[in-house]
């Protein structure tokens, strides 16, 4: 049954997957909570590994969540579920000769869709910040250092324009130095 849960979650996700992997986190998070596949902390770890790996973050997250929930079978089912919509849509669009770009209806849809995709990412950031004790009223070495890591990571990405993969690796080393 868990394979079916994985399949329909990622199959639906494949049809609404706009704007890269991170806007899809709320969909994964909702399914993870509803079906009890894993804790929020482990889900964040999975998203981190997905972000560190080559390939699309959405597909990588599906593979890792699938593996984490149901082993290699789960990974295969989840990967197929998220890829199938792309195949269906590509064949459909190509077969029907649908001209999608510069199509006024598509442009109007994107006018509302893009801001909502932004909301989805902000929502994902809030959820993960709460789940990982980044937003907290406790003042301790850990909470202060986490806020500092957050600030420095954002600085490296926005101002220094570092590749996210390097930021994750460096952050991991900092974590080992500070918390082990």
């Amino acid at each position: 049954m868990i394979l079916w849960e994985l399949f329909h979650t990622f199959f639906i996700m494949g049809f609404v997957s706009f704007g890269g992997g991170y806007p899809m986190i709320p969909i994964i998070e909702t399914a993870v909570t509803d079906y009890g596949w894993m804790t929020a902390e482990r889900l964040t770890n999975m998203i981190a590994i997905a972000g560190m790996s080559p390939g699309p973050v959405a597909v990588n997250s599906a593979i890792l969540v699938g593996y984490s929930a149901a082993g290699i079978k789960g990974a295969l089912v989840s990967a197929m579920a998220i890829l199938l919509p792309s195949l269906i849509l590509v064949i459909l669009v190509a077969a029907l000769f649908i001209k999608l770009h510069h199509n006024p209806v598509v442009e109007n849809i994107f006018y509302g869709l893009k801001p909502l995709v932004t909301s989805l990412i902000i929502f994902a950031a809030l959820k993960f910040a709460l789940a990982n004790d980044l937003i907290t009223i406790n003042v301790s070495f850990r909470s202060i250092s986490l806020v500092a890591i957050f600030g420095l990571s954002l600085f490296a990405l926005l101002k220094l324009r570092w590749n996210p993969v390097y930021v994750i690796i460096l952050s991991g080393l900092v974590g080992i130095a500070l918390y082990s």
Binding site: P23, T44, F128, L134, I149, S153, S171, G172, Y179
Partner: peptide
């Protein structure tokens, strides 16, 4: 485990970065 305490925070920063870019 220690590495991932820090990495989870960095992931939040990466998500915020994605939001800013979009």
């Amino acid at each position: 485990e220690a590495a991932f305490i820090s990495i989870r925070t960095t992931i939040v920063a990466i998500i915020v970065y994605a939001a800013i870019r979009i």
